[in-house]
Design a protein around this nucleic acid. Sequence first.
DNA 1: TCACTATGTAAAGGGTGTTTGACAATGATT
DNA 2: AATCATTGTCAAACACCCTTTACATAGTGA
Lengths: 63, 63
Amino acid sequence: MKNRLKVLRAERSWSQQDLADRLEVSRQSVNAIETGKYDPSLPLAFRIAETFDMSIEEIFTKD
Amino acid sequence: MKNRLKVLRAERSWSQQDLADRLEVSRQSVNAIETGKYDPSLPLAFRIAETFDMSIEEIFTKD
DNA sequence: TCACTATGTAAAGGGTGTTTGACAATGATT
DNA sequence: AATCATTGTCAAACACCCTTTACATAGTGA
């Protein structure tokens, strides 16, 4: 799975920590998802989509 | 998270095994997701959405 | 009744997601 | 030069996802 987190975050000038705070996860989780180390859980994917006011499919794609 | 898996599956007259085969997971995984024991991983949620030709948001909701 | 299908559930084990704490490297500011 | 914010990464620990194997129950049809 690929994702557009890094771009979306940059567009808003948020640090990884800023996004982590909004998502209520650790900064390391945000970093790991951005750098492709693993995919978020489904509930977290929903929170991410909410945070960026987009659908999950607009943020994540199957490679 | 809630999901409409059981209804969508019934609409197509698929057994849990039928759906599991299409998703390439075990029948127990389908059952566990349907009965709310846990949420699928994000990649599996994508396969589920594809299988039913719907968006993830149309199938899963945050309670 | 006997077989067969479908569903729910349980236990054990491997793999993944998330956490905290820590350290290093870079770039900007003072 | 020293500080600070940001990012990347690592390790250990714990919870969750998914597997296989297995057993129990209920419904269907020969």
